[in-house]
């Protein structure tokens, strides 16, 4: 799997070249186009339980009912049959793409960012204690995104789509970031609440919905920041759409 990223930074598209018989796991929304010998080899529905990205399709009901905001990511496997093939992949929104080579510790990333991965990469979506990472303050509206952990015993690649430009930050000590802008981070980093006070803002803070999820990254490692917040984008668009009839 050779990846070349073009049209950077605003309209990035990844051209993935596959050898004969080679496959790539992609998000359902990521495919732009492909050569005619590339087949959608399998579709699967992640139900936020740990499993290999290349595992066989499952018929399990999603853990979250459709009314819940959190949507598990859906993946397809694209395989070049009979000859080498090419696949074009892109994120949902304008922005850059980030290609990560898997390392032993693995990475965590925002679920909105998943574009593609090598078949051996394990994507773990059931992460204890990390579900509240992206939620805004104490609002009951849970975060519509979650963290996914990517690991692989073999060398593998992970392709993530950012909303906006990507800035890699070296964490040496502490970094305070708004989680919506966090694309990915090395698993060795610890993430905790930033403790930047919201509650002490008085009546105004209680009256208005919390609009930030500030978290503190501690330790040594790298964090990739995206310069636009996809969750805020989705919320703004979704709220402005005509109401859906229940």
């Amino acid at each position: 799997m050779k990846v070349h990223i073009g049209y950077r930074p605003a309209q990035s598209v990844a051209r993935v070249n596959l050898d004969t018989g080679e496959s790539v796991i992609v998000d359902h929304s990521a495919t732009v186009g492909m050569s005619p010998n590339v087949r959608l080899a399998a579709l699967e529905h992640s139900d936020r339980h740990a499993h290999g990205a290349g595992a066989a399709a499952r018929g399990a009901e999603p853990k979250h009912p459709p009314s819940a905001v959190a949507e598990p990511i859906q993946r397809a496997s694209l395989c070049a049959q009979g000859a080498p093939g090419e696949v074009l992949l892109a994120a949902r929104w304008p922005g850059d793409l980030l290609l990560l080579e898997l390392m032993p510790g693995g990475y965590l990333f925002q679920s909105t960012a998943f574009v593609a991965a090598s078949p051996d990469v394990r994507l773990d979506e059931q992460l204890d204690g990390l579900d509240a990472l992206f939620s805004l303050g104490a609002t009951p509206e849970a975060a519509p995104v979650h963290a996914i952990k990517a690991r692989s015993e073999q060398p593998g690649q992970l392709l993530l789509g950012a909303c906006g430009a990507i800035e890699p930050l070296e964490c040496e000590g502490e970094l305070i970031l708004e989680m919506g802008h966090v694309l990915a981070w090395e698993a060795a980093l610890e993430v905790r609440d930033a403790g930047v006070d919201v509650a002490r803002g008085g009546w105004l803070a209680r009256l208005t919905p919390a609009r930030r999820a500030l978290r503190c990254f501690a330790g040594r490692g790298r964090v990739w920041v995206q310069t636009r917040d996809p969750v805020a984008l989705g919320r703004r668009l979704g709220r402005a759409l005509p109401r859906r009839h229940a």
Binding site: I176, H181, A205, T208
Partner: peptide, 16 residues
């Protein structure tokens, strides 16, 4: 509101 992306430690934030 909602436009903060990153802070240095020691920066205070209050709504107004």
């Amino acid at each position: 509101a909602g436009r903060l992306m990153r802070l240095e430690p020691g920066v205070e934030v209050r709504p107004a």
